[in-house]
Design a protein around this nucleic acid. Structure first.
Lengths: 228, 228
DNA sequence: CGGCGCCTCCCCCGTAGGAGGGATCAGCGG
DNA sequence: CCGCTGATCCCTCCTACGGGGGAGGCGCCG
C-alpha cells in the first residue's frame, strides 16, 4: 500500500531513551530504502506523530512514560481503528504479558532489543510489506499457546452431522440460553415442536439435558466465547 | 540439550522429491556446524529415521506419499510424545489448514520453500536451539488468529468477585454439567445446601437459571473449551 | 405411488430445578 | 460481646424440562 515502488519506507521511532532512539535512527537511516521521519519519547507523542505523518512502520518501545507502547499501539492499530498504522514492538524483556497484550493491541511484530542490526532492518521491511514477524522465543510461546487449545470448528461436526438443519438451529438457540418458549417465539413455531426438537437433539447426541447440550456447543466450537 | 557445545546440529531431511532433498542437503552440509544424518522420502521413513537417529531437527515436507508430514510430525512431536524431536515444516503453498495443523502437530517452525538459503540455515539453527520461527505471512495470520479471540481469564472476575469461594466451587461444577445432587455428592454436602448456593450464585450474577451460569462460565473464561 | 425423513403439533406425567421462606452454627472483626 | 458473613440444612410451591407416546402434512426418491 505504501512504502514500496521505489519509495522509501517511512519510519517513526518511539522510545523514551534518547540513546536508543539515536541508535535505531542511525541503523535505519543508513539503509537506502528506509527513512526515519520522526522520533517520539513517549506513547502520546508516538500516536501524535504517527497520525500526522502516516508512516509505514512505527518502532514502538513497550515501556514509556505518560502512555506506554501498548496503549499507543492500541490507538494506532487496535481493533476498531479505521486506518491502522503498522507497529513493530520492541522490548528489553520478553515478558509474556507484554507479548500477548501487544499482539492483541494490533502489533505486527514483537522483537527483543538484543537483536542484530540486520535483523532490525529486515524486520522493518517485513512489517512494512504487510507481513509480520516475532522474536524466536516469542514465536515459540505463541505456537505453544496456539497449539494448547484444541481446534475449534473442525471437530464440531462430530456427532452434529446427525442433526437436521432445524435441529442445529434449535441447538444454537439452546446454547445461547434461550428457553423452549423463547426458541418457539424466535422460530415462530409451537413450543411443543421445540420440545420435540430438543428431545431429538438430546437423543442423537446422547446428552442428559440441555445443559450438556450447551456445554457441547462450546466444547466443539459450535459456539465460540465472545460471539455473543 | 543437543546439537550445541561445539557439536554439530544433526538434521534429517524428509521430502518426496529427490531433487529437493539434494538441494537442502547441499545447502546444509555446506555449513560447518550442520550435518545431514539421513534423508527420507515419505513420512514413515522420516519417523523411522528420526526415532533411530534422534536428530536435532527434522526438515519435513508437508505433502508426501504414504504418510504426510503432518502425521509424521504428530508422531515425532505431537502431544503425548515422550521425547519429541523438533520438526521444521516446509511447504510450497502456505495454506491455512496446513499451518494450523502443523503447529498443532507440534512443529517448531513453518516455512515456505521459496526462502533464501541463509534463512533456511538460520531457521535450522533457531529450531535446534529450542526456539521457533515462522514465515512472515504465517506469522501474520497466526497473530491475527490469536488476536481475534478475546483475552480469556482476565475479564473473568467481572461479577465473579462477588461470589464466595464455595460458590465459585459450585459454579465450576455447575459449568461442568453436574446436577445439584451430583454437586452435593462431589462436595460431600446436602443437596439442599447446593440449591442454596446455586440460588445465591444466580442472584449475585443476575442470572435466570443454571444454564445461563454455564454460558457465563464459558464466556468469561472461567471455563475454557478443551479443559474438560 | 408408497415409503421415508423432516417438520409440525398435541397429551400425559414425573422430576429436577429454582423462588421464597426460615433455621443453626462457626469464625471474624469491631 | 455483638453483629455480620458464610456454610450448612430444612420446608413448600411452581414451572420448565424431558420421556413416551401419537399424529398429520409435505417433499423426495426409488
Amino acid at each position: 500500500m505504501t512504502g514500496r515502488d521505489g519509495m522509501s519506507i517511512r519510519v517513526v521511532v518511539a522510545d523514551d531513551q534518547e540513546l536508543v532512539r539515536a541508535g535505531f535512527q542511525m541503523i535505519l537511516s543508513a539503509q537506502p530504502d528506509i527513512e526515519v521521519v520522526a522520533e517520539a519519547a513517549d506513547g502520546a507523542q508516538a500516536v501524535d506523530a504517527a497520525r500526522r505523518l502516516r508512516p509505514d512502520v512505527v518502532l514502538m518501545d513497550v515501556r514509556m512514560p505518560r502512555m506506554d507502547g501498548l496503549e499507543a499501539t492500541r490507538r494506532l492499530a487496535g481493533p476498531g481503528v479505521t486506518s491502522p498504522v503498522k507497529v513493530l514492538m520492541l522490548t528489553t524483556f520478553d515478558l509474556d504479558d507484554y507479548v500477548y497484550e501487544a499482539l492483541r493491541a494490533g502489533a505486527s511484530g514483537f522483537l527483543l532489543k538484543d537483536l542484530r542490526r540486520d535483523d532490525l532492518v529486515n524486520a522493518v521491511r517485513v512489517v512494512a510489506s504487510g507481513e509480520a514477524l516475532l522474536a524466536p522465543s516469542v514465536t515459540r510461546r505463541l505456537i505453544g499457546e496456539f497449539a494448547r487449545r484444541p481446534r475449534p470448528a473442525q471437530t464440531a461436526p462430530a456427532g452434529l452431522a446427525a442433526l437436521t438443519a432445524r435441529e442445529r438451529e434449535v441447538l444454537h438457540l439452546m446454547a445461547r440460553g434461550r428457553s423452549n418458549a423463547e426458541i418457539a417465539a424466535d422460530l415462530v413455531i409451537g413450543e411443543q415442536t421445540v420440545k420435540t426438537h430438543v428431545s431429538n437433539i438430546l437423543a442423537k447426541l446422547y446428552l442428559r439435558d440441555r445443559i450438556h447440550a450447551v456445554i457441547l456447543a462450546y466444547e466443539t466450537g459450535l459456539i465460540e466465547p465472545g460471539t455473543r
